[in-house]
């Protein structure tokens, strides 16, 4: 398996480092102070390949808090805060786009016919 650090890093805009928390798999972002946060707002945002590589190296070295760290694109919103850069990252950040865990409708006898 190729280490993320050995992968070619193409950075064409603002990016963050993201991973899944070891204990529960929750989506986390690497912060400026070398910790992890579940809030994208707290993420360190960089815009060059060397900076991203350095941030990623620190994240990968911390193999106990988070798993599968990688570089993810973000966009900077009008208020200056980072927003997910694509649909996959948006879903990771905000959760499934579908309601889960509850029956969708009233019993069928009352509908349709």
């Amino acid at each position: 398996m190729t280490s993320p650090l050995e992968q070619k890093l193409k950075v064409t805009g603002p990016v963050v480092i993201t991973a899944n928390r070891l204990g529960d798999g929750a989506v986390v972002y690497r912060t400026r102070d070398g910790n992890w946060s579940t809030r994208l707002d707290d993420a360190a945002v960089v815009s060059t390949a060397p900076a991203a590589r350095e941030l990623l190296a620190g994240a990968v070295a911390d193999g106990l808090s988070a798993v599968g760290a990688y570089v993810a694109p973000v966009q900077i919103g009008p208020d200056g805060r980072p927003e997910p850069g694509n649909l996959r990252e948006r879903i990771r950040c905000t959760g499934p786009t579908v309601r889960c865990g509850a029956p969708a409708v009233a019993p069928a006898i009352t509908i349709g016919l």
Partner: peptide, 28 residues
């Protein structure tokens, strides 16, 4: 052993997969 750090993720992943445990977008 994974939680304590004795096993790395590369070592643990094939073990969890043998028990049907995947790491998906938001959770295991």
């Amino acid at each position: 052993r994974r939680i304590s750090g004795e096993l790395t993720e590369d070592e643990f992943k094939p073990l969890r997969l043998m028990n049907g445990v995947y790491l998906q977008l938001h959770a295991y």
